[in-house]
């Protein structure tokens, strides 16, 4: 089922290395912006437009850095977007191969249940708010756990260390305060 930490860590390191060796470092959180851009462009086709030398957007964030996000919104079948879809497929197949996740665990994690009870609405509300803060923070930071922390620290990037310091400075106290009981 779960791998022992040594085998798991080694495999995870090999995947991050393979990405840098063959293409570029792994990153995920940008693709949330790309999906938002695709949805936004469906609602308002003027959001992303073609120019003589690429793409631009009425949204300053999509237009920044020469419109590279605007370009990805216009052409989502690129490496980084397909990568995230493939992650979902790989995770799905891995879970399937180890017999799936139980019904009660699928609705909410057992550690959450032990600390906060069975109210699913409460869990979903916190997951939603958590997602909002996580992605807002990731875009402010310019990357997330995979891009900044894993890929960044692996490359000895100063930004990766700054990010990891911030992430754990908040994550450890919040987790200690919220999850007082073991399960």
């Amino acid at each position: 089922m779960s791998l022992n930490w040594k085998v798991g860590g080694l495999l995870l390191g090999l995947v991050f290395f393979a990405a840098v060796l063959l293409v570029k470092p792994i990153g995920v959180s940008t693709q949330f912006v790309i999906v938002d851009g695709i949805i936004g462009d469906l609602v308002n086709p003027d959001l992303v437009t073609q120019t003589d030398d690429g793409f631009t957007s009425t949204n300053a964030y999509l237009a920044k850095s020469g419109g590279k996000y605007a370009k990805s919104v216009a052409n989502p079948l690129n490496y980084s977007f397909i990568f995230v879809l493939a992650m979902m497929l790989g995770g799905f197949l891995s879970v399937l191969a180890r017999g799936g996740i139980g019904q009660s665990e699928r609705s909410m994690p057992e550690l959450w249940r032990a600390n906060f009870g069975d109210n699913a609405v409460k869990r979903y509300a916190v997951a939603f708010l958590g997602g909002f803060v996580v992605l807002y923070g990731a875009r402010l930071a310019g990357g997330c756990t995979s891009g900044h922390m894993m890929s960044g620290m692996m490359q000895t990037a100063l930004s990766g260390y700054i990010f990891a310091a911030g992430a754990f400075a908040a994550a450890i106290p919040v987790s200690i305060l919220m999850f007082r009981k073991e399960a």
Partner: peptide, 18 residues
């Protein structure tokens, strides 16, 4: 700053983007 936000949300929800 963004790292602090991500960390807080990561702990509360148990998930990061990937």
């Amino acid at each position: 700053l963004g790292g602090l936000m991500l960390g807080a949300g990561w702990a509360a929800s148990g998930y990061c983007p990937g």
